[in-house]
Nucleic acid binder design. Structure first.
Lengths: 231, 231
DNA sequence: CCTATCGTTCAGGTCCCGTTCAGCACCTTC
DNA sequence: GAAGGTGCTGAACGGGACCTGAACGATAGG
């Protein structure tokens, strides 16, 4: 999952980036409203952590503009405690959640997890497909109950596909969500990772859709040969 | 484990800090409500010892505010014996335990141990993983029954990892729990301690998760090839 | 004042992981 | 069936994350 952190205070910005990266996310950063507005419009983030008090362009305005533009990226707002009204305005402006400053990092991480989970339409922090199970909180993958050793990138690919089950995901989309801003586009790394995943997992759950990308089918009830569902 | 001591009376504050440090904890201190409120919101303490009668901002209020913010850090309240009602209010406000003043230092230490144990979800004061056993009360570590000589920092690293068995602990998180407020961030001390621990312990229970941190696996029952657990 | 121990720093080395690339297989189109 | 495009895979490389041995400085105890 690829996130954007918008926070003008350099130390805090760094701490947020660090903590989120430790969790396995890919993180871009912005230090003012202009920059944030541009990146948010341009890059397909899975979530944006947005401070309200910003130079250049206020965080609330930025958020309002995004929403007006039809950009639905989930947003977690950071707001000063004594500016209670900002919270209300923030939620009105289309924020998905907020955290009051000062905060404990763990609090932010928990809310980020919650929003991403909600956005993916999941009830729990684990996604399973056949014998494969993935835990978004601990970043662990099991196959028939046995732990699978995945590298960081392998995990990101699998996690993105699993949070988009049923959908065909293009290589480009995949690339945009597991790498940050600057990355050499034409490269076959995705193919290599998919290959390695297939080798490491007992069931081949990753389907290739020629000319389009990859897809993992939802583990819905077994499908009969004629295409109808079994009860 | 990193603790915060909130007590306005300087002598008592010093005594508490001293006693807790002798037990092997890392201790920050605050002398009034404002300071306490801020530190509690910001730093990831494992436990806070909170006096009720405080200048600037009453201890109970501080605690209530924390709880309202969703800050769940365990709190041990210190209250004057003759103000019985404070005890009730304290527990209502979300305290985990209380000690009446004047108290025996040993009493406080015992309750601190108890709360930390509960918070870690442990039944006893000892944690074991394979041949390694750690006693939170005596701060002693044994390997196959033999005592292991660990330095203070080595012990802290091992203890933190063991109380978070199964979880990947980032270097940052580890640092925050074994050092007090001001500590140079980028330094490889953690790596050095992990290295020394691995050398001193017969079983290599500390696993490194590249790019994320370290983890100690729970000593769960052996897993069979078919995925079922052995009794 | 001297010594032992411990925490920290630093430099060098090692190993893993991400990436690249070439060759092959397969499908599609003509 | 040939040719070109698309995807797969094994091997290899380079860089960075991690490890480790040694040295230094601080501190406490004698």
């Amino acid at each position: 999952m690829r996130l954007l952190v918008v926070e003008d205070e350099p130390t805090l910005n760094g701490q947020l980036k660090q903590a989120l990266e430790d969790e396995g996310y890919v993180v871009d950063v912005a230090f003012d409203g202009e920059e944030a507005a541009f990146l948010g419009e341009t890059e397909p983030y899975d979530l944006i952590v947005l401070d309200i008090g910003l130079p250049q362009k206020d965080g609330l305005t930025v958020l309002e503009d995004w929403r007006a533009d039809g950009i639905a990226t989930p947003v977690l707002i950071l707001t000063a405690r004594d500016r209670w009204s900002d919270k209300v305005k923030g939620m009105d402006a289309g924020a998905d959640d907020y955290v009051a400053k000062p905060f404990q990092m763990e609090e932010v991480l928990a809310r980020v997890r919650a929003i991403l989970r909600r956005a993916a339409g999941l009830a729990s922090n684990t996604i399973s497909c056949g014998p494969i199970e993935l835990d978004l909180k601990t970043n662990r993958v099991t196959d028939n109950g046995l732990a699978v050793r995945l590298t960081a990138q392998e995990y990101r690919v699998l996690a993105y596909l699993l949070t988009n089950t049923g959908k065909v995901v293009s290589r480009t989309e995949l690339t945009e969500h597991i790498y940050d801003q600057d990355f050499d586009r034409d490269s076959n790394t995705i193919e290599v990772f998919v290959g390695r995943l297939r080798k490491k997992l007992s069931a081949n759950i990753i389907e290739t859709v020629r000319g389009m990308g990859y897809r993992i089918q939802p583990p819905e009830d077994a499908v009969q040969a004629d295409g109808s569902k079994a009860s």
